[in-house]
């Protein structure tokens, strides 16, 4: 599809999704779409640093969690929620720069292992310092409108997709892909790899922080350590791989497929859904490393041959 084709598709989808709360008055539908949009934003944020710059962040939940923590705290202290989310994103990014400045100087698996450890340390610390469930004040609960959360999610998902689409066509995006393919060869070709890895991390964690803010805005009550849980990282990772890592539309397809399957499986086979996703993940990595995007491309080639 051409650039204009994609743009038209994106605008149409956005308009249709924006109209949903006006037409559909069922909370279960809005909640489902909300989850899809949150997943798009979170997966896309992981896709920036891992799919494009090739830096496997296994502690992505730490940045999602930080965004949630800061947003929730400020919002309950009666800040506007968007201001809270912006500061949440800022906190996540500042922390990311600190981590990246150290971990990116080391080659190999240090970044993956370091972020994994860091995510867990943060989760345990938050769980110890803030063991009580966080519940919104009664007045806020009274004024709760699901549509507000839905529009926040829609805007964030659109921004996340927009960021990745812009990256795909930019000089920085191409440089990041060069880093992903071969760091030494990228350096030899003039690419400042440390700067680009940090840029990818900043973009990625700013989006993850905002997604955390959205989580804090959506839930009436939750344990503050919950958004720091490693399953958020693995959701983002699975969605991105299922859809197509390092592509713009992969994580969108992946999120729709994943949330749908997860909701369905959670109702039918509560105990088995992790096992099923694990198997699915392995199958995709082994047989279809390009995810759904590649599957679609292969089908198209087959169809063309059959004609």
């Amino acid at each position: 599809m051409s650039r204009r084709g994609w743009l038209a598709l994106g605008v149409t989808a956005l308009a249709a999704l924006a109209a949903v709360p006006l037409v559909v008055r069922r909370d279960d539908v809005l909640n489902f779409l909300f989850l899809v949009l949150l997943s798009v934003a979170l997966a896309q944020s992981w896709n920036v640093v891992a799919g494009y710059a090739g830096q496997i962040n296994l502690g992505h939940a730490a940045f999602f969690g930080l965004g949630a923590l800061v947003t929730r705290t400020l919002w309950i202290a009666e800040w506007p929620v968007l201001a809270g989310a912006a500061l949440g994103a800022l906190a996540a990014t500042a922390f990311a720069l600190l981590v990246g400045a150290v971990a990116f100087r080391l080659r190999g698996a240090y970044f993956a292992i370091g972020t994994l450890a860091l995510g867990e340390i943060l989760r345990i610390t938050v769980g110890n310092v803030l063991p009580e469930v966080s519940t919104l004040p009664t007045a806020t609960i009274g004024a709760y409108r699901l549509a507000d959360r839905y529009y926040f999610a829609l805007a964030l998902a659109a921004v996340a997709v927009g960021v990745v689409a812009a990256l795909e066509r930019s000089r920085a995006g191409l440089g990041m892909q060069a880093v992903r393919e071969d760091e030494e060869a990228a350096e030899a070709s003039g690419v400042g790899t440390l700067r680009l890895k940090l840029l990818a991390l900043v973009l990625s964690t700013a989006l993850a922080g905002l997604a955390g803010g959205l989580f804090a805005y959506y839930h009436i009550s939750y344990y503050p350590a919950h958004p720091f849980g490693p399953h958020w990282t693995f959701d983002a990772l699975l969605i991105t791989f299922i859809g197509g890592v390092g592509t713009v539309h992969g994580p969108v397809l992946g999120a729709i497929f994943y949330v749908f399957l997860k909701e369905y499986l959670a109702i039918r086979w509560v105990d088995f859904h992790l096992l099923i996703f694990g198997a699915l993940f392995i199958t995709i990595v082994l047989l279809l490393p390009g995810g759904l995007v590649e599957a679609a491309a292969r089908l198209r080639t087959l169809a063309r041959r059959a004609c």
Binding site: L174, G175, Q177, A178, E181, A185, A186, A188, S189, G190
Partner: peptide, 23 residues
């Protein structure tokens, strides 16, 4: 490089573009 190291996941044109946009 002695053992060739093109950016395998990129197209030939993109490989050259990296050198052109940076460097």
């Amino acid at each position: 490089f002695q053992h060739v190291r093109p950016f395998a996941g990129l197209s030939a044109l993109e490989n050259v573009l990296v050198g052109r946009l940076y460097g």
